[in-house]
Computed example of a mutant assay.
Amino acid sequence: MAIMRLTFRSKMLRMSTDVHIVFPLKRNIFGDPEGREPKYFVSEKKYKVLWLNHGGGDNYADWVYRTRISELAEERNLVVVMATMRDFTSSRGDVDYYGYLTEELPAYIRRILPVSDKREDNFIAGLSMGGYVSYRAALNHPERYACVGSLSSPLDIVEDYRVRHAGSKTLKSADSLIGTDKDIYALVEKNLTEKKEMPRMFQACGTEDFTWDINLKMRDFLYSKNLDLTWEQGPGIHCWEFWSVYIEKLVEWLPVSKISEERHKFQ
Rank of each mutant, 00 (worst) to 15 (best):
L6T: 04
R9M: 11
S10C: 02
L13Q: 05
L13H: 03
R14M: 08
R14L: 12
M15G: 14
S16N: 14
H20K: 13
H20L: 11
K26G: 07
K26D: 09
I29V: 14
F30Y: 12
F30P: 14
F30G: 15
E34N: 13
G35C: 04
G35N: 04
P38L: 10
K39P: 01
K39H: 05
Y40D: 07
V42A: 03
K45V: 11
K45Y: 13
K45W: 03
L50P: 01
L52R: 00
L52A: 06
N53K: 03
N53E: 04
N53Y: 10
Y60S: 06
W63H: 08
W63N: 03
W63K: 00
Y65Q: 06
T67D: 00
S70C: 14
S70A: 15
E71G: 12
R76Y: 01
L78I: 08
A83S: 09
M85L: 14
M85Y: 11
R86G: 15
G93A: 06
G93E: 13
D94S: 09
D96P: 04
Y98M: 05
Y98T: 07
G99A: 06
R110W: 07
I112Y: 10
P114E: 06
V115T: 02
S116N: 10
D117P: 13
K118F: 15
E120T: 01
N122K: 12
F123K: 05
I124A: 02
A125T: 02
L127Q: 11
S128E: 00
G131P: 04
G131A: 12
G131F: 05
Y132M: 08
V133F: 00
A138K: 07
L139E: 02
N140Y: 09
N140K: 10
R144A: 12
Y145C: 00
Y145P: 01
Y145I: 02
V148E: 01
S153F: 06
S153I: 02
L155V: 07
D156P: 02
I157D: 08
I157V: 13
V158T: 04
E159K: 14
D160H: 14
R162F: 09
V163D: 12
H165C: 04
A166D: 11
T170I: 11
K172S: 06
S173H: 13
D175T: 07
L177F: 03
G179D: 08
Y185I: 03
V188M: 04
T193M: 12
E194G: 08
F202S: 01
A204Y: 11
C205L: 14
G206Y: 00
G206M: 02
G206H: 00
G206L: 07
E208G: 09
D209S: 08
F210M: 10
F210K: 08
F210V: 02
T211M: 12
W212M: 05
N215E: 11
N215K: 03
R219K: 10
F221I: 15
F221S: 07
F221M: 03
L222T: 05
Y223V: 10
Y223K: 11
K225N: 04
L227M: 10
L229Q: 11
L229A: 11
G234L: 14
P235Q: 15
G236S: 03
I237R: 15
C239G: 15
W240S: 00
E241P: 10
W243A: 05
S244Q: 09
V245A: 15
Y246M: 13
K249Y: 12
V251M: 08
V251W: 02
V251I: 09
L254H: 05
L254E: 01
L254R: 02
S257M: 03
S260T: 05
R263Q: 05
H264G: 10
H264A: 09
K265G: 04
F266V: 05
Q267I: 13
